[in-house]
Design a protein around this nucleic acid. Structure first.
Length: 466
RNA sequence: GGUGCGGUAGCCAAGUGGUUAGGCACUGGAUUGCAAAUCCAUGAACAUCGGUUCGAAUCCGAUCCGCACCUCCA
């Protein structure tokens, strides 16, 4: 079996073969911390989480770097407007970002470099570009990259250089540049930047946006690494420019694979701050949805497809997750205190292979989920006639755990049951024994107020969190 | 204008030449003091028109529709 991923560079699916054979080094474009990230942003981080988890499932090691863009036009403008120092301003949103990642059960990357901590590396990189003749300083003091010097410019986005046309926005300092499409490596200081400024060989200023990713990725992962990820909107110009800067400076290939995820859309339109059609995770959770339900939503659409966000789907996910939870609980109850696993029951024998086969094909998550639901279905059916042995239940639980290392949705944390809830349950059982149905129903309502439903089964009453 | 993605049942969503994808909802059944929950069963589809083929959701051509990117958006 081989894990195949779609490489935007070649526009084909290629087998993932790490440069050093065993260790996958990946770089992920992270958030610009000027505000709360919306769940469209998290769609990308979720894709990257699934990717790193599946890479590990395949037996590779992973080192992932995700940057924090804590200096750019938006962060500077907002911090000045609010009269808060930049570092302090961005800290709020950096903290919120990590808190949201945790709620979505996204595995932490190995490194989260902040742009402002890597200014010297960026300056070194720009100096190299000057040495090699790719950089020039314009009259306003800013430093630009000359795309005409880099023959491969446009290879990722497959740009038609001649066809880049007028529909494009007009850059204000166009006339300072050799080519209107040249991009900034270093931006000369302007009063609007307030006290956000660093010294450089070309005068005071701040780095351009693209250079930070090149500098931090190569510093932490090496001049050539395996996978670079981001949303499709980063293909051009951001990733194209990263390639131009990095490969021009080192003369080596930059990232071996480029992977891009599709958008989250709302009513057919891309979710974005400018359209105002966005939701933050905290807003959705305030509406009563859990991080796990949102995770399921973001996870279960294929990453290269645009994903239509709708609360209706979140409601549907709740039912689907319940089905998985029921099965999971059933297995836990069946295994008791047994720890030794036997062979899997026949109805689960092919599940892992089917799951892996689907995921190997560029992370076909729908196929992978189908394998799991098929197992649940076959299992439920089989259990109606042939009880599962304790050791088989252990084997299923082990499988479940292995698959959930990739998905991060199957396991649900144990719910703590308060003493008073237990008392109510006892009282209700007593009432039922005495066939006092009105008292029994009254207690059921009382339990609901504590957030629990009770189900009466042949083995006695069972509590479930609503 | 250039580049790219897409249109599959009530909704979501896999599938790239022949075999039940899957989930949610609906309906029926089992279970239940009644419920709820759960479990089982179940129909229904490939944007349009043409072509290739024994056979097309899948390949080819045309058309219609939607979305995105084209200089700092995940």
């Amino acid at each position: 079996m081989a894990f195949k991923i779609y490489n935007t560079m070649s526009r084909t699916k290629e087998e993932l073969l790490p440069l050093d054979g065993e260790h996958v080094r990946m770089y992920t474009c992270g958030p610009t911390v000027y505000n709360y990230a919306h769940i469209g942003n998290f769609r990308a981080y979720m894709f990257e989480d699934l990717l790193r988890r599946y890479i590990k499932f395949c037996g590779f090691k992973v080192t992932q770097v995700q940057n924090l863009t804590d200096v750019d036009d938006k962060t500077i403008r907002a911090s000045i407007e609010q009269g808060i120092p930049l570092k302090e301003y961005t800290k709020t949103y950096i903290d919120a970002f990590f808190s949201d990642l945790a709620k979505l059960n996204i595995e932490p990357a190995e490194h989260y470099p902040a742009a402002t901590d890597y200014i010297p590396e960026m300056i070194t990189l720009i100096e190299k570009l000057f040495e090699k003749g790719y950089a020039y300083q314009s009259e306003d003091g800013s430093v630009y990259y000359s795309i005409d010097k880099f023959a491969d410019y446009g290879k990722l986005a497959r740009l038609d250089r001649e066809g880049m046309q007028s529909g494009a926005r007009v850059d204000q300092d166009e006339y300072d540049k050799d080519n209107a499409a040249d991009f900034a490596l270093w931006k000369a200081y302007v009063p609007e930047d307030g006290d956000v400024v660093w010294d450089s060989p070309w005068g005071r200023g701040r780095p351009g946006w693209h250079i930070e990713c090149s500098a931090m990725s190569m510093k932490l992962l090496g001049e050539s690494f395996d996978i670079h990820t981001g949303g499709v909107d980063n293909i051009f110009p951001h990733h194209e420019d990263e390639i131009a800067q990095s490969e021009a400076a080192t003369g080596k290939p930059y990232s071996k694979y480029w992977m891009h995820c599709g958008y989250l859309v709302v009513d057919g339109k891309k979710m974005s701050k400018s359209l105002g059609n966005f939701y933050t995770l905290r807003e959705i959770m305030d509406m009563g949805y859990t991080g796990r339900e949102v995770r399921y939503e973001l996870l279960t659409g294929h990453y290269r497809q645009s994903l239509n966000f709708a609360f209706k789907s979140l409601d549907a996910n709740r039912a689907a997750l319940k089905r998985l939870d029921e099965f999971s609980v059933k297995m836990k109850e069946s295994m008791g205190s047994e720890t030794e696993a036997s062979e899997l029951p026949v109805w689960a024998e092919s599940t892992r292979a089917r799951f892996a086969e689907a995921m190997d094909d560029d992370m076909n998550i729908s196929g992978a989920m189908a394998a799991i639901f098929d197992m649940v279905h076959a299992g439920n059916k089989a259990l109606a006639t042939v009880p599962i042995t304790k050791k088989e239940a252990v084997a299923i639980s082990n499988l479940w755990e292995e698959l959930d290392a990739v998905l991060g949705i199957l396991e649900r944390p144990e719910e703590e049951i308060a003493d008073e809830v237990m008392e109510l349950l006892k009282a209700r059982t007593l009432a039922r024994a005495e066939k006092d149905w009105s008292e029994s129903d009254r207690i059921r309502d009382a339990l609901a107020e504590f957030g629990w439903t009770v189900k009466d089964t042949p083995e006695g009453p069972k509590l479930r969190k609503i």
